[in-house]
Simulated scan of single mutants.
Amino acid sequence: MNQSIRKPVVAGVAALLLAAGAVGCGAEKEKSPEMSPAAAVAKAAKNSRDITTLSYRMTGRTPEEGRVEADVQMRIKPTMAMSMKIKALDQGADGTAEIRVVDGAMFMGGNPEMSKEMDGRDWIKFDLSTLGVDKEQMNALGGASSAESNPAEESTFLTGADDLEKVGTEKIGGVETTHYQGTVSLASMRKSYEKEDDAKAREKSLKSLEKYEQMGIDKLLMDMWMDGDHQTKQFRVRGDAEKGKLDVTIAFKDVNKPVKVAAPHPSQVMDLGEMMKEGAEGAEG
């Protein structure tokens, strides 16, 4: 597959995982008593763990690919699935793609140039069982991890900010929100996560932290816009990486509403696992 096509898509998936924070989209209810910034952000982080489905729009800039935008629908429970349409705006035609994750397989398509390389078929399939790879290897391809991880859980990053403060109030998507901001270092975040009592949550958080470390970022400036239900309507993360600036904003839309993701029709799919299997059998013959 054309590397110029795959590279921005994979990086875009990583950007989504790195940039997302706590999420919510409910109507504002009666206001609760004023909470400290730390308590409010911690409550939003806790609320994020109850999310079963979500959709959001990501815009911004990643260190290697430049301007990126994406629309995502994700089902986390009871089974995992995702649909993402992404554009690396500075990559031209090669930077447009769609990714779907269904039943443990990732489908990549939506790019005319890629279709030309696959005899007119529009999708290429990466299947865990067929390829015989583990989850860590699949994560390197940039697809499965985004469906297996609730991006809202990374809101805990902001709880580790020593300078966390309430900036003011703003309307986001027609909803009144409170704007919080803080700067966090990777070292302080790691210490905070290592104290997490929930082993599963701790493991996910530490893996998310590693993604930033691999980018060469040592501190992050984070903004969170929270509604009256202590759910986040918008989240922004900024940092200086080894290969450039990271500046990504996530605007959350629907939460806990039905999400349906269908696999492409088999006639339009090139199965990478089957190709590898046929190639191996041919070599043995």
Rank of each mutant, 00 (worst) to 15 (best):
E65W: 06
V72W: 08
M226N: 07
P258F: 02
A40T: 15
A262G: 02
T59M: 11
Y180R: 07
S192F: 11
V261I: 03
P266W: 02
G26Y: 00
L16P: 05
T156C: 10
D218Q: 13
G168H: 05
E194M: 14
D218T: 14
G282N: 11
A187H: 02
G60L: 02
M276P: 01
E242A: 15
K219M: 01
R67L: 03
D103L: 08
L158S: 09
E274K: 12
D247Y: 09
G173R: 13
K46Y: 05
M58E: 07
G143I: 00
S129V: 14
L54I: 01
S146L: 12
M224N: 09
S36G: 01
G26C: 11
R57A: 08
L220N: 07
A44F: 07
P37K: 10
M215S: 06
L221N: 06
D50N: 09
K191Q: 04
K260Q: 09
R57D: 15
S149V: 04
A27N: 10
V102C: 04
K253V: 03
G244A: 03
I250W: 07
L131S: 03
S115P: 00
P266K: 01
A140T: 05
A14M: 11
T53K: 03
I76H: 10
E194Y: 13
D247M: 06
K253Q: 14
G92L: 04
S146V: 01
M224P: 04
